[in-house]
């Protein structure tokens, strides 16, 4: 089993505010990890820290065995594009869409890595099969779509790339329960192959029973390595010490 992501003693924050305190976790190929926790306990910060978007951070983050973390005390987002090109896709809270561009432009923009750009046509077909409602909206500017459709565009854009690790921040935020359930279903159907997915979510019941592991994030620290499938807790412990 290969480790897609290996986080070791990660601390991160913004200015004088420390949000994450010594978080360690390992994500293996084929896993879907759910991170649950209340508002303000560091879920988004954890995902942002992996993408290099926090104000400062310390500790090691390895993506596919390549170090992308390390100590950084300024320049949020300065290396994000490089991390993204190494195989990360973050679908952030608030979607970070380009309001004036069309849905088709968004899907193209998701494929900015060199290989993906060449085969963006096939990839677009594949992504549209996961989110069928989007195929009718391709020529629409995103500013005119509804909240659920925007979230779909954001997820679809993330899936266009070569990403080995998909980070999804709060897929249900601001959406009707039915729509968010549908979105989570769509996320579960994605073929991860040798990749992995981390979903941060406030609503535990949305993820329960669907993901490989659930981790709780409380006050910037991981709580419990709750396991819902056969993978035991001990290997995780052993990795610690």
């Amino acid at each position: 089993m290969t480790d897609i992501l290996r986080v070791d003693e990660l601390s991160a924050g913004y200015g004088p505010l420390g949000v994450l305190h010594g978080v360690s976790m390992t994500v293996r190929a084929g896993e879907r990890i759910g991170i649950v926790g209340l508002n303000g306990h560091g879920k988004s910060t954890l995902l942002k820290a992996i993408a290099g978007l926090t104000g400062w951070q310390r500790g090691s983050i390895q993506l596919n065995g390549v170090e992308i973390g390390g100590t950084r005390s300024q320049g949020p987002g300065r290396f994000t594009h490089r991390i993204v090109r190494m195989g990360l896709a973050l679908m952030p809270q608030g979607d970070a869409l380009f309001h004036g561009l069309t849905v088709a432009d968004h899907l193209d923009s998701g494929a900015f890595t060199t290989r993906a750009w060449r085969e963006r046509k096939q990839r677009r077909e594949r992504v549209l099969a996961i989110f069928p409602p989007l195929s009718k909206l391709l020529a629409q500017p995103v500013g005119r779509l509804s909240g659920g459709e925007r979230r779909m565009v954001s997820l679809a854009r993330g899936l266009m790339s070569d990403a080995k690790l998909l980070l999804v921040d709060e897929p249900s935020l601001g959406l009707a329960p039915k729509i968010s359930r549908g979105l989570v279903e769509a996320l579960m159907q994605i073929d991860l192959a040798d990749g992995a997915m981390i979903i941060a979510e406030q609503n535990l019941s949305l993820l329960e029973g669907k993901v490989t592991r659930l981790l709780g994030l409380h006050a910037g620290k991981l709580k419990g390595g709750a396991v819902t499938q056969d993978t035991a807790l001990t290997p995780h412990l052993l990795h610690h010490h």
Binding site: L53, G77, L90, P92, F98, H99, S109
Partner: peptide
Amino acid sequence: LEIRAMMQNPEGAALVGVG
């Protein structure tokens, strides 16, 4: 397309790999 994406949302552009 990269430039137009950056015009609209710099953070989003970084997230799709635009330096």
